Structures are given as C-alpha cells and as structure tokens.
Simulated assay, not measured.
Amino acid sequence: MADTWQQMLDTIATEARYTASMTGRTQFSEAVMQAMSEVDRSAFVPAVNREQAYDNGPLPIGNGQTISQPYIVALMTDLLELTPDSVVLEVGTGSGYQAAVLAQLARQVYSLERIPELAEVARKRFADLGVTNIEVRCANGCDGWQEKAPFDGIIVTAAASEIPPALIEQLGPGGRLVIPVGPPCSYQELLQVTREPSGDIHRRRILGVAFVPLINDQKYE
C-alpha cells in the first residue's frame, strides 16, 4: 500500500533522528517541515507514479532524471538555513518539487534547468499552482546565474565531480551551498559549503547520497 502524505512526513522525522550522528540534526526546523507539509509531492510526479508520490524514495520524471526522495529534499533544505528574506539559486529544476519547497521559505528562488522540456513543464506547473516567486531559466547550471548573484543559498540537485567554481563565487557572505559531489554510480557525498562573512570558505561532509550526474559537468583547473 502506498504511503500517505502524513506517513511521508513521519518518515522524514524518523530518518532525521536516525541520521542525526552524521547530519548533526535530530530534527529539521519547524519551518522546513511546514513547507514539506504544504507542497503536495503528487503534483510533481508523472501520473504513472502518482500512487508512489509519498513513498520515501526517488521517482523517474523522464529525460533520465528523477525527483529526489522526500527526506533528502527536507535535509538539503534544512542545511540551507533560509530566512524569509533569502534569495536562493537552485541548479537542476527537474520536476520543480525542490524549488516549490524552497519557495515556501525564501523570498525568491532562481532555478536553472539544462533540459528545455523539463524547464517548460516546471514553469507551467508553478503557474498552475500559483507559485509566483520562482524564476526558471534554461541554462548550464555549472555557470550559475551571475546576474542574480549573490545568493543566500545555493542548492544543487545533481552530483558534480567537483564543486563548480562559479557557484562558490556567487555565494554571498554568510551563504550556504548544499551539493552532492562524486562520480556517477559510485560513492557521493552531500556537502555543505559556507562562506563566512570574512569571505573564508568552510566545507562540511554530511552523509553519503546517490544522485543523477550534473549535466554538462566538467573538470575545472
């Protein structure tokens, strides 16, 4: 039997306690859990997978991409530590689910998607849902969105072989970048990168994850 929306939220809370030794979080913020309770995941998955919408696992969305499991969406959102005034960059719009959760917490979300079909579907979905504080651009996410920088938070929803320098450069003072790093079909780590007000950069390893590769990812000198 497929999980219900409330079961999904309960599972997220249980997983947060279970992974606390790695993440340093026994629970996610009340604001994050509220956002997860207000964004209906079933609106972001293909009709064929609608019955599994609240299961705690990734689901295919077409074009070789997936919608992340709810726990990971909540964890990555919590690691950003957003405020109502935050401006966020998302790399990898995908279904639009992660962006919709961020939009509940931040003043503005800018989202980059390399695949035109996914970008267009996400734009229409946001319009249909009445979400007005997300702007989607079809572009290479490794380059970030310089015209909208600096960002209070940057979230990457695909695994990079290494962190694109442009994303660190576009992170504002006190901002946080959350990104999975590692090769495809191998061990990947979720990282939290913080730019201190002084400009110093700190990296923290969170836990092992499994993401699709960042499209057009490349090596950097």
Rank of each mutant, 00 (worst) to 15 (best):
A139R: 07
A74S: 06
G153D: 12
L82T: 02
L9K: 02
G64E: 15
E90Q: 10
L59H: 11
V131N: 03
D3G: 06
Q6E: 13
V178Q: 04
K124V: 04
C142A: 13
Q27V: 07
R195C: 14
K124C: 09
N140L: 10
S186G: 14
T83Q: 11
R41T: 00
G94C: 00
A35Q: 08
T66R: 04
A122R: 03
D85W: 02
T4N: 05
C185L: 08
Q188K: 13
A166R: 02
D3E: 15
T83F: 01
D200G: 05
R205D: 09
G24A: 03
P150M: 06
K148Q: 11
I72F: 11
R17A: 07
E147M: 11
T23Q: 09
G57C: 07
I163G: 02
P60L: 13
S198L: 06
P70W: 12
E120V: 05
R25W: 03
C185V: 05
R50Q: 06
T93P: 01
V73Y: 08
P180D: 14
F28A: 03
Y18S: 14
T19D: 10
Q108I: 03
A20T: 10
A119Y: 03
I72M: 15
Q65Y: 12
C142W: 15
Y18L: 07
N133A: 13
M36Y: 08
V178T: 08
S37G: 13
Q188I: 02
M22T: 08
G64A: 01
G199L: 12
A159D: 04
Q192R: 14
T83Y: 03
L167Y: 14
S21A: 02
A210W: 10
P70I: 08
L105D: 00
E196D: 15
R137V: 13
P164Y: 05
P183S: 11
Q69G: 00
I12Y: 01
V136I: 03
V101H: 00
E113Y: 10
I134W: 01
G130E: 13
P70C: 11
S86R: 15
T26I: 01
K148G: 07
A47E: 06
G94K: 15
I72C: 14
S68V: 05
T194P: 04
